[in-house]
Design a protein around this nucleic acid. Sequence first.
DNA 1: TGAACTGTATCAATAAATGTTACAAAATAA
DNA 2: TTATTTTGTAACATTTATTGATACAGTTCA
Lengths: 139, 139
Amino acid sequence: MAANSQFATAVHVLTILAKNNKERVKSDYIAGSVNTNPVVIRRLLSSLQEANLVESQVGVAGGTFLAKRPKDIRLSEIYKAVSCGEVFALHPNKPDENCPVGKNIAAILCELQKEIDKTVEEKLNQYTLRDLIEKIEEN
Amino acid sequence: MAANSQFATAVHVLTILAKNNKERVKSDYIAGSVNTNPVVIRRLLSSLQEANLVESQVGVAGGTFLAKRPKDIRLSEIYKAVSCGEVFALHPNKPDENCPVGKNIAAILCELQKEIDKTVEEKLNQYTLRDLIEKIEEN
DNA sequence: TGAACTGTATCAATAAATGTTACAAAATAA
DNA sequence: TTATTTTGTAACATTTATTGATACAGTTCA
């Protein structure tokens, strides 16, 4: 499949919204910057709205704007809003129950998976959207 | 696509090899425990062999065994041997160069991506295969 | 009332991963 | 030396996650 790039796209979209302050931005405009279809953007905005990161207005002169200030949006919130949150996947098939290893490995891997995911989340929690915007402006 | 479960499978496979000490284990047997096709296992073993984690012998009475002791195999080595090593993907399409955000976002995201990947690797470096095996035996 | 939006359902296209088949090459044992 | 067993790998099929596209109902506002 295509690799999941929703987190990267979400950061891009939120940065655009931040730059436009409290103005309503149209999905068409955002799609132009991201270079994709407006529906893809609206779908993503839907997830971000559910996480209370953005607000949208329908109708003429509608569009989307940030629901919080960039300094109050942590990257971990963005990550949680759009990802399934798993760094590596578990086996697609159930291991053989008759094998002593197969029988017990799944639980151990699941535990490890959670620990790694938590590590990523903690790291992303150290940055806010404002931190990223400042880096962009340094260029 | 199907989610990449190679790391989880690799850990499973290496645990089986560890349990069988220095005996040669056949891909058919491993495939039984993992519940997949032997060729999938041989393909994975090929990557692990390249990373010097296992050795294989072809022919009658052939099979695979660990190239190092479990306490000398760090989970980070396994991860590097089988993954592309990216927690989240960048945009599939190139952002619009005319947009001030689109123009600069890729570099920032790439930097962030590397930092997150490094965080995961460091965490996985804290554990050895033996640590996992001990956990399994506690059950 | 008409125009310009979002929201969302549905389907098509793409791409990555796994699963399968086939067979050459190697090792061993009889 | 021949038959057997096993790895290694190429080639292709299948599955599934993601993105992209089309269509249209529902809102808002002039």
